[in-house]
Computed example of a mutant assay.
Amino acid sequence: METLVFRFENGTRKLDSAAQLVGVVSSGNLEVLVNQTDLQSACEIEVNTAAIGFAAIWEAVMKDFHARWQLADVRIAINDMGATPAVVSLRLDQAIESSLEASLEAKK
């Protein structure tokens, strides 16, 4: 297993929801856990992956994700068993969309 950690400073979008878990770790898939926490407007992403040697690809996918969402005070944990970059991006977007939906439901 390889662990990669990415940190993006000066995010602008906060999530107002409880922790969200999407996906299932199995062959070719991954799970994403999103937690709101005080990171002084940063977003931290920790990737635990069985696919060793792909740090540059992970970095590109995480930079693209951060550019789309600009998250602040969010910690994300990813457990991966060999998902493709497209699946990673889709699962990350799904996790954030679930968090936003949960926030809206809580405000009702």
Rank of each mutant, 00 (worst) to 15 (best):
E9N: 15
D64Y: 11
V24E: 10
I78G: 02
E31N: 13
F54S: 10
A83I: 04
P85T: 04
D38V: 05
M1D: 02
T84P: 08
V24Y: 11
Q70P: 07
G53Y: 02
C43F: 01
D93A: 11
G82L: 03
E44A: 03
K108A: 13
T84D: 00
M81Y: 00
N35E: 10
I57Y: 03
K63S: 12
A42W: 12
Q94V: 09
G23A: 12
E46D: 06
V61L: 13
A77E: 11
L90F: 08
V22L: 14
Q40D: 15
S41I: 04
V87P: 11
T12M: 10
L90Q: 06
S99M: 12
E59L: 05
C43M: 15
M62L: 15
D64C: 04
A95F: 08
V74D: 14
L71W: 14
S98V: 02
E2H: 00
I45E: 12
K63Q: 14
A18Y: 04
V5F: 07
A95G: 03
K14F: 02
G82K: 09
K107W: 00
T37K: 13
V61H: 11
V32K: 05
D93S: 05
V74F: 00
D80A: 05
N10K: 12
A72R: 01
D80P: 06
Q20I: 12
L21A: 11
S41T: 04
I78R: 06
T49H: 02
A83C: 14
I45P: 01
M81K: 03
A50D: 01
P85A: 02
E101T: 06
S41H: 06
N29V: 11
F6I: 02
L104D: 12
A72M: 03
A55E: 02
V88S: 07
V47P: 11
V5Q: 09
W58Y: 15
